[in-house]
Design a binder for these strands. Structure first.
Length: 223
DNA sequence: GACCAGGCACATC
DNA sequence: GATGTGCATGGT
C-alpha cells in the first residue's frame, strides 16, 4: 500500500470518528420498511426531508403506501397525495416508473430485487427514468443494505470546502475515494453518510457556521 | 420576498 | 463534455 493511500485511509477514518464523537449514531434511514425507504429516496430529490415526511404520511393515511396500490394508482391521484414534497407531477411519474420496474423485473418484490448482483442492479436502477446515481445508491445502501457509499450535495460540499477534493470532482470519483479507502461495510457507509448530512444541516449549509464545526482544522488536507 | 432543500432529465451549444 | 433550465412545496 502506498504512502498516499495510507494517508487517505487515515483521514477518512479520522473524519468519521470526529463526526461520530460529535453527533453519535444517526439511526438512518428514517423509514419503517425498505419499500418506504425507496419512496423516500425518490421523493427527497432536491427537497427537504420535512416535506417528504408530509408526503409519505399522506400515503400512509390513505393506506396506499404499498407496491400494489402505487402500481395501480393514477399519476394524477398520486401527484395530489405527494404534493408537499414538491415537483409532484414529475415525482409521481418517477414513483410509477419504479413500480413498473419492480413489478416487471422482480414480481413486485423488494426482497427478490435484493438478491440481484449489486453492480448489475445499480445499472438497472440507473436505467429507470427518474433514478440517478444518488437515488440508486440510497436505495442500494439504505433499503437493500448493500455496501455502497452515497454521495449527496452535503457530502460534496463538505469535502470541497475542506479542500479534501477539488471543485470539479465528479460523483463517481468521490464515491471511488470512499470505496477504495474504507472497509466495504454497510453499517459504516450508512452511518458515515448520515453523519455527513447531520453536519451539513447543522453547520455546512450554503451559509456555513465554520467556527463551531466539529471538522474545523481539517481544512488543508488535499487527497 | 428571496433563498434554500438529502436530484434528475433534457435541450442546446 | 460542459452548461443551462424546468420541475414546486414549505421552512427560514
Amino acid at each position: 500500500m502506498s504512502k498516499k493511500t495510507r494517508k487517505h485511509k487515515r483521514i477518512l477514518i479520522e473524519i468519521y470518528d470526529t463526526l461520530y464523537n460529535a453527533f453519535g449514531p444517526q439511526y438512518w434511514w428514517p423509514g419503517e420498511t425498505p419499500f418506504e425507504v425507496i419512496i423516500g429516496a425518490i421523493l427527497t430529490q432536491n427537497t427537504s426531508w420535512g416535506n417528504v415526511e408530509k408526503a409519505i404520511n399522506n400515503l400512509k393515511k390513505n393506506r396506499v403506501c404499498s407496491i400494489n396500490s402505487l402500481y395501480k394508482m393514477q399519476n394524477k391521484q398520486l401527484a395530489a397525495l405527494i404534493k408537499p414534497a414538491g415537483y409532484f407531477n414529475i415525482k409521481a411519474k418517477r414513483l410509477k416508473e419504479f413500480m413498473n420496474f419492480l413489478v416487471s423485473n422482480y414480481r413486485g418484490s423488494v426482497k427478490k430485487m435484493r438478491t440481484e448482483d449489486t453492480q448489475l442492479l445499480r445499472n438497472r436502477l440507473l436505467s429507470v427514468n427518474g433514478i440517478g446515481p444518488e437515488t440508486a445508491d440510497s436505495i442500494l445502501l439504505y433499503a437493500l443494505e448493500k455496501p455502497v457509499f452515497v454521495i449527496d450535495a452535503y457530502t460534496k460540499r463538505i469535502m470541497q470546502r475542506h479542500k479534501l477534493v477539488s471543485d470539479k470532482t465528479t460523483y463517481h470519483e468521490l464515491q471511488t475515494l470512499f470505496h477504495e479507502n474504507l472497509p466495504q461495510d454497510t453499517r459504516l457507509f450508512n452511518e458515515y453518510h448520515a453523519l455527513f448530512v447531520k453536519l451539513g444541516k447543522d453547520y455546512c449549509k450554503t451559509k456555513p457556521k465554520c467556527s463551531e464545526c466539529p471538522l474545523r482544522g481539517a481544512e488543508v488536507i488535499i487527497l
